[in-house]
Design a protein around this nucleic acid. Structure first.
Lengths: 213, 213
DNA sequence: CAAAAAGTACACTAGCGAGTGTGCTTTTAG
DNA sequence: CTAAAAGCACACTCGCTAGTGTACTTTTTG
């Protein structure tokens, strides 16, 4: 019975360690989001991760580092998700209104739970002076979106002398307002979100669709 | 020399008490904004207010109440300021672009320091479940703005079937983006803010100015 | 002045949470 | 099998903070 099949059960020293690490970050992420930085105790994080407190400290050294690593993960995940959404939804041939609506909706509802992401981000700005980590994470998707908008402008679908500005305006009108809605009322149906996005896309197109000039 | 002028120096028992109370709330507001709820200790608040800790507790009972009262004050102040800005800047006869720009700029730069206000608000959402206090504070200015937009639409200056939506879009494009800019980079010149607002007004007018239809 | 209101100084409890030290058990690798 | 890596249980230090109790001083008022 001593066969190589055992390799499935035994992940190896390193993999096991990584597994614990990931579990700790999962727990930390959830607790930081739910409770905030100060109120989420390391003991609670350890308990939730089903790991001893000592292991937590062996892996990360201190609480601030746990936070930082968790934030990095979330940032990366969101940036990747947004990038994917841009590439997959904002495709050249597609009807513009449809594409923009699908994109906005996907970013807000799919991906992480974006509202959680926003919450996490807030903890950052909370004077915690996490260098420009969060900022960098915002920049990447913003730039990608900007490029796509520039392409749309070049293709004559949009009138956007300043694609960066257009991208910011689009985000504000759709994703920004949708997230705000999510935060305000606890119970928001997906239909409401879709409406918010659709209205935002509407206004955006009125302002930026190639027309008069 | 014992004249009634002394009344200026001696505010009376009640007024003195109110004075201390205000000083405590001032200190609390500043510290909560700077440090966050947990890190702002009651001792620090008392010290900053130049008041004994005991007095703080005599007045407010506990830390949560201090926070709540401070938040109420800030909310009221901002709501008043926004209301005043609406009434004084968004006057009927005025050129629309100019009026909207002045309004946006005033809300962002004048009034409280709005960015501080935003910071304070964040502490609220931080799971503190301050009932709908903050929400109510947001609602009042929003509704006033909505009414003014409805009036503008009636006057033929705007095409806004849904004035509430128009108001939200306006806010998102101007004030929202300006505040975001303020939070991101530590050093933002007023000129940049003005640009952000002007760009937002531009886009808004393209989307909502009475035109084609 | 006299009494009460308001405020102060300060000591004290009580609890929580970050981080450490240590010896023990389990897992994995050779 | 054996040694080392990884993890665990647990006890403990230390600092900080919310909140209280109390006796003392100042201010205000009649």
């Amino acid at each position: 019975m001593s066969r190589a099949i055992a390799a499935v059960q035994t992940p190896g020293r390193r993999r096991r360690s990584e597994g614990k690490k990931a579990a700790i970050l999962d727990a930390a992420e959830a607790l930081f989001i739910a409770e905030g930085y100060e109120r989420a105790s390391v003991d609670a994080i350890a308990a939730r991760a089903q790991v001893s407190k000592r292991t937590v400290y062996d892996h990360f050294g201190d609480k601030a580092t746990i936070f930082l690593k968790a934030l990095e993960r979330v940032n990366d995940a969101l940036a990747d998700a947004v990038q994917a959404a841009i590439e997959e939804e904002l495709t050249p041939g597609r009807d513009l209104r449809e594409a923009l609506t699908a994109f906005g909706r996907r970013v807000v509802t799919q991906t992480v739970p974006s509202s959680d992401y926003v919450t996490f981000r807030r903890l950052t700005s909370q004077h915690w002076a996490v260098p420009r980590l969060a900022e960098a994470a915002r920049d990447r998707p913003e730039r990608t979106l900007e490029e796509r908008f520039a392409a749309l402008a070049a293709g004559g679908e949009l009138t956007a002398a300043d694609p960066r500005l257009a991208a910011r305006h689009f985000t504000a009108l759709t994703i920004g307002l949708a997230l705000e809605t999510l935060e305000a009322g606890g119970d928001v149906s997906e239909a409401e979100i879709v409406t918010v996005i659709a209205d935002g896309v509407d206004a955006f197109l009125r302002a930026y669709r190639t027309g008069p000039a």
